[in-house]
Nucleic acid binder design. Structure first.
Ligand SMILES: [Mn+2]
Ligand SMILES: [Mn+2]
Ligand SMILES: [Zn+2]
Ligand SMILES: [Zn+2]
Lengths: 148, 148
DNA sequence: TCCTGTTTAGGAATGATTACTATGTAGCAA
DNA sequence: TTGCTACATAGTAATCATTCCTAAACAGGA
């Protein structure tokens, strides 16, 4: 992507969000990344430019951008939240060794038929496919189940 | 399902796991549920029968059963882990209001083509589809995005 | 029955996230 | 341009799920 700070300020205005240097930097770091960073990752990346930045602000910013629809959480486990500013429909491959998350953009996955057998009053708004496995460097360490 | 405690002791033996009353009760509560409970839920359910039960033991048991392949984690957010002893291939619908998780068994979802564009040394071992939306009772409270 | 490695209970520790709050500032209007 | 006000920030403290640690209990095999 590589959005400039000016592009970002414009986008914030369009969305009715206040534009602050911290907020713009955090969003820029996220939108220009494909690594699905944690809040801490973003904090570490932006900190050098804004030494006063608080990790708290990163969390607050992510929830604000989240409820504006500019950022989504990606859950690969219950441990820590990972964030994604890639709004085009896509899916994820997760390495169970290093926890890396790779984007999958495969249009065949974007029009799955709605699932059968649901309560009829259930309103599905979106879905995502999560593939799991092991990346090249984690393959050998892939531990088999003990019993069974 | 409705497995008896004897069935469960047998299954543990088959898997090479020690059978203790606590362990069997925890697994029984989980395997006979479709609610994808948390560790705390299981603790609350088993506690009346085993007043000395420790929440710690629930966590330990779940990791043991997990590495034996009898139990899987279902992640619907980064907040708390939900557990599932339903080993038949299936998918989930998650209500974003009440966090309920409903099983989806739709065989059309069980043979998706492997995704394109991955590093060739990536080894996919499984995948799951997570549908999100709002159940009947949570529908009205479904809050729209602020900006954008 | 005895032995040994696993399991349990309980308490303490960890670590990500949230809550609280005083100060700062963006955006708007006079 | 200036001043106002609501929102944003930083720092600290609190929360809470999960993990760590350890002594005692115990399951399963010899
Ligand atoms: Mn992504
Ligand atoms: Mn399930
Ligand atoms: Zn890996
Ligand atoms: Zn609901």
């Amino acid at each position: 992507m590589n959005l400039s700070l000016d592009d970002i300020r414009q986008k914030f205005r369009d969305c009715g969000l206040k534009s602050t240097p911290q907020r713009a930097s955090i969003y820029q770091a996220l939108v220009n990344s494909t690594a699905h960073p944690t809040a801490e990752d973003l904090f570490a990346q932006v900190s050098p430019t804004y030494p006063m930045l608080s990790l708290n602000t990163v969390y607050y910013t992510l929830t604000v951008l989240g409820s504006a629809g500019l950022v989504q959480e990606v859950n690969i486990g219950h441990d820590r939240a990972r964030y994604d500013a890639n709004l085009s429909p896509h899916h994820h491959v997760i390495c169970q060794g290093c926890q890396d998350i790779i984007d999958v953009m495969d249009s065949r996955l974007d029009s799955l038929a709605p699932p059968t057998g649901l309560p009829k009053d259930f309103d599905i708004t979106s879905y995502q496919v999560a593939f799991r496995g092991y990346c090249g460097s984690c393959r050998q360490s892939q531990s088999p189940n003990k019993g069974c």
